[in-house]
């Protein structure tokens, strides 16, 4: 069953149409990538799912419930967590405080503490840096912190917006490994990436978005060899 489902969704920024009848679905336990050029609508898709941007028309369901008119905090409470582009960590707050924000909607502090422990186990470098200000972390560490913060909310599904942005190739691989590990631990992942090669290595399926609609859909391994994808996104 589809965990997240877009069916013929239109989204407008004022008069500009950002999504044009976009349809996609993410099943439970999958890692799905959204590929596409700048301005294709990848980030808008995530922002729409997390209700930061309102749906113009179409169907948007999460876990079988209509969320097209929901508020961001309702979506978070339902277990759909958005890790925004550019990491957006709180640079003057400590790593631990950043993680605690992830558990803001979780009333039980014991649960938050357990999840923080689990994130520290997954990302030991965050434990080493727990008292440091977020802004003093390296780019890769900040990305790990942003992902860790998302995990504290106890997501059923995690949406990551360009986690590889501005990172060295080696660090990109580490981030992708973490994403795989998150899925192994039972969280569905929707991944937006410009770095198609890195993304396709870990994803089960991928969509290509062009001008606000999905144009190609396929298995990650198939798309890696798809001539259309190679020409447009991977380079020869």
């Amino acid at each position: 069953m589809a965990m997240l489902e877009f069916d013929n969704v239109d989204v407008f920024y004022g008069k500009v149409q950002a999504l044009r009848g976009l349809s996609l679905h993410v099943d439970e336990g999958e890692i799905v990538a959204l590929l596409g050029n700048n301005g294709a609508g990848k980030t808008t898709t995530l922002s729409t799912a997390s209700a930061l941007v309102k749906v113009g028309s179409g169907i948007l369901n999460f876990g079988g419930v209509d969320i097209s008119r929901a508020n961001p905090w309702d979506v978070v409470a339902a277990g759909l967590i958005h890790v925004p582009e550019g990491r957006r960590i709180f640079s003057t707050l400590s790593v631990l405080e950043n993680l605690q924000l992830g558990g803001f909607l979780v009333k039980d502090r014991g649960v938050v503490a357990k999840r923080i422990e689990r994130v520290f186990a997954l990302l030991p470098l965050l434990f080493e840096r727990r008292t440091q200000q977020g802004g003093t972390l390296s780019g890769g560490e900040q990305q790990m912190l942003a992902i860790g913060r998302g995990l504290i909310a106890g997501p059923k599904m995690l949406m990551l917006d360009e986690p590889s942005m501005g990172l060295a190739p080696l660090i990109v691989n580490q981030v992708m490994d973490v994403i795989k590990e998150i899925r192994e631990q039972g969280t569905t992942v929707l991944l937006v990436e410009q770095n198609a090669r890195a993304a396709l290595r870990v994803t089960d399926r991928a969509y290509v978005i062009e001008s606000g609609a999905t144009t190609v859909e396929g298995k990650g391994s198939d798309l890696l060899n798809d001539p259309r994808i190679i020409d447009a996104y991977l380079g020869a």
């Binding site: 930061l52 961001p72 925004p84 957006r88 709180f90 707050l93 924000l101």
Partner: peptide, 23 residues
């Protein structure tokens, strides 16, 4: 307080705070 923490998150980055479920 809990509200005080929410204020600090909003002060630091309103969009990120909202994405994490703060009203």
């Amino acid at each position: 307080s809990r509200l005080g923490r929410a204020w600090r998150f909003v002060r630091e980055d309103e969009d990120a705070a909202e994405a994490m479920g703060i009203h």
